[in-house]
Structure formats: C-alpha cells, structure tokens
Amino acid sequence: MTRTRRGMHPVRRKRLIIVVFVFSGLALAVALAMQALNENINLFYPPDEIVGGHAPLNTQIRAGGMVKMGSVRRTAEGVDVEFVISDLKNSEFVVTYTGILPDMFREGQGVLATGRLLDDGSFLAVEVLAKHDENYMPPELIDMGKNNDS
C-alpha cells in the first residue's frame, strides 16, 4: 500500500466504508442479542431441585412435573387456582396461578409452568402449558423420566 489513506482509490474507499458499516452493525447486533438472550432465558427445574432449594427465588424459571391427583383447588371468588406438581416420587410443591387453565390440563398429567419461586416455597405461575398427546410431552419432562431411571 503505497497510497496514503487520503489518496485511496474511491472504489476501495467506498468498499471500506461499506465493510466498516456492516461489521460495526453486526457487532452491535450481536452484543445486543447476547444481552437480550441472557435476560430472557428461562431455565427449567424439575420438582426435586425446586424442593431441594437448587432453584433461584424470585427469578423467572420454568418448572414441571405431574399434577398430583386431587390437588387442584379453586378459590371461592375470582379465577385463582392452586395445584400440586409432583415427580411421583418424594418431591412436590404448590403452584398458584390466576386465570384459565389450558384445555389439556388434567390431574395426573404432565404440565410445564413458567413463573417464579416465592420465599414460602410455592411457585407463582404466569403461564401453564399442558398437553397429553400420546406422542407429545414437553422435552423437559421426558428427561425427568429418564433421570429417574438411573
């Protein structure tokens, strides 16, 4: 490069500007994306980890397991509902939710709840997902079954 920067060929300079523009844009996008990702990932915890105190308090997480038979209770007023999620072994915890549960929600079936764990050990859900197709179960719950085998 014998030419000085100032004397750079206009085409080259244009190309350089475009490249700089593209790369700085990309770098910015990546930085923003990583930050947004870190703020918005929800980790999944099975019942034994929630009961064992391994899940963080007051942070948005996902929890799942089986809805314990006979555990669904509704308040006399409003649309608050409460049920127990269990791993059908020794661990279970109470979930509270305000709103209408999905069609597929059933006692004895798997559910996946998004929300946060409160200081009193109960789980305040903002979203409850349930589906009991013969071919479907949330992947988190599939693994739970596997781990229990070993």
Partner: peptide
C-alpha cells in the same frame, strides 16, 4: 450436556 432452557418472547 442436557441443560434445558427456553428463550422468552421479550428477547
């Protein structure tokens, strides 16, 4: 090696 997460809508 098997950690489960989901990416929230706000992202």
């Amino acid at each position: 090696g098997g950690g489960k997460i989901s990416v929230g809508v706000p992202y």
